[in-house]
Design a protein around this nucleic acid. Structure first.
Lengths: 332, 332
DNA sequence: ATGAAAGCGCTAACAC
DNA sequence: GTGTTAGCGCTTTCAT
């Protein structure tokens, strides 16, 4: 067995509780004995047993992190690791550990286990696994939590963080206008998702603010792209710049553009959400609206710790600002 | 406070120890009382406190997973999440939790904390953070561990898993030969890394086995690529296919190839290690040597659990087979 | 087959 | 300022 608080106590000639007090700074102890205890701890290479500590004071000093690995979307996977890293960094700074799980089983079994078996003091989880039952359970057990991704329906009080998709679109439009474009088109994949609807809103709003009256939102498909490009070539469509939902869409559109010999960025400016590893190597390198996934994790963790401290459930959301990286697919 | 083993005992009218025995199947209990205890547990919604359990039997039922988020290599980040997911899945199946950390601090402080504060029963860590001191510590504390990535110098006994880079190259060469190419060239970035040296070895070995006497290994740089392409165009160099270190290299080479109007896959076949999200959308879609990162995590976890069971340190390594995905940058 | 009791390592309420 | 003691919730000998 390893060296315990009792060994230290015996070694120094004090009571175990005194040692505990020194460790936790939970009472005033004479500098003299304090020093002797610290020395003894160093000498005997003492390290507190985390489980005993947790058991004794009812706090686990660990937070749970649920990831949804089921999400095969290349991009969300690609930089998720940064979120994880950020969360762990924040936790570490506060002396907390991070228990990670991908709740494959339906019913959120593992998440519930985390709660019921008292494994964690708080939880960060993806919006995809939220449901009424889980929220109720979290509330019943008074386990603070933060959601990654904006919930569609925010019935009960809850904290969440998400990318500021609305701002992302606004940024894109602004950049395009400043670069001399004046007739933008937004290519989306599925307007029903909450992030695409935010992007669409930001796009429309900004266009109106900038007094652009000729802007369009299109659903991406090869046929649609070809039709639009035809109209642009023939002069029917005055569109002079595209904002794409993601790098794959951007890349495919770029191919079609090249097929009809339209010049980028001269005739058509191209800007895309997300920043895949290859984006800067494409021809031309893509101007992108990047997302700071590290920041997102960081904010989620900080929000969680605030909740854990205050004990009363807050309703606070944090939007992570997007960042425009200007490259050569838009005029500069 | 939540319901404990005592509550169950009282409710049923037995001793707490009996309840414990039922939970752990650690003694023969009459079906009768067994049933009554199970019923009571369901009724009172009992869930064992994981910390108390760990404290009592000295086992944490959790494993540690160290990630090196410092590694900014886009690809290793991109699919690392799959490894994490695999590890957690295996652990979950065995009733274990996963504590994750990115040991930013030098000195492996957190890893040591995991060990000394008895937070984990075993650890999976990246080869980058291995050093003699850490290995000694792990050994001293009898904490089983598995390394992700092949260590350069394998002094002490240890378990590790890695991608079978040698086989990856052999697979590439084989595919090229079968597709009718006969003079391959391997483009590497830095021959000194262990994985590139394995790839180079696999490449050379396979070429010899296949009785190819005209094969080359080149260090990637734009000038080198241009020079080689010039020689190919002018007929001095008979090379008819390239194997690239990664997708970025492949993409850059592809650009240069297009500049000199060489046809892919007709005149030059192209195959690359790794499979970035955009690889299949490139023109032409890239034939790749893919890596099963899920499998890698899975194997690491399984190896760890074997070690934890047997208690005596084994020396076993597992190479994860690569997989060729034939697309259109090579003839079919 | 089950009860009693000690103990895992640490904390905290209560003494003095 | 420090000792005493009673737990935290569970496991595990030792009885019977």
């Amino acid at each position: 067995m390893s060296v315990t608080i009792k060994d230290i106590a015996k070694y120094v000639g004090v009571n175990p509780s005194t040692v505990s007090r020194v460790m936790n700074g939970t009472a005033s102890i004479s500098e003299e004995t304090k020093k002797r205890i610290y020395d003894a701890m160093a000498e005997l290479d003492y390290h507190p047993n985390s489980f005993a500590r947790s058991l004794a004071n009812g706090s686990t000093f660990t937070i749970g992190l649920v990831i949804n690995a089921g999400n095969k979307d290349a991009f969300s996977n690609a930089f998720f690791i940064q979120s994880v890293s950020a969360i762990e960094t924040v936790a570490q700074a506060k002396g907390y550990s991070v228990l990670i799980t991908n709740d494959l089983q339906s019913e959120n079994t593992i998440i519930k286990k985390f709660i019921l078996e008292k494994k964690v003091d708080g939880i960060i989880l993806p919006v995809q696994c939220m449901d009424e039952e889980l929220v109720k359970m979290l509330d019943d057990n008074k386990v603070p939590f933060v959601v990654m991704g904006e919930p569609q329906k925010k019935k009960s009080k809850m904290c969440w963080v998400d990318v500021d998709n609305e701002q992302g679109s606004r940024q894109a439009v602004e950049h395009l206008i400043e670069s001399g474009y004046h007739t933008p088109m937004l290519w989306v994949e599925n307007k029903k998702t909450i992030f695409e609807s935010k992007r669409t809103k930001g796009f429309s709003d900004m266009c109106k603010e900038k007094r652009i009256d000729d802007y369009k939102v299109c659903t991406y498909s090869q046929e649609n792209v070809r039709r639009v490009l035809e109209d642009i070539v023939s002069g029917i469509d005055k569109t002079d710049c595209f904002i794409c939902a993601n790098n794959i869409v951007a890349y495919n559109i770029l191919k079609e553009i090249k097929n009809v010999w339209i010049k980028v960025p001269e005739r058509i400016g191209l800007i895309t959400f997300d920043n895949y590893p290859l984006a800067e190597y494409l021809e031309p390198p893509l101007t992108v609206i990047d997302i700071d996934t590290y920041r997102m994790g960081e904010q989620a963790a900080e929000l969680l710790f605030e909740n854990m401290k205050d004990k009363e459930r807050k309703t606070e959301s944090r939007l992570i600002p997007t960042q425009l990286i200007a490259r050569e697919s838009t005029r500069s």
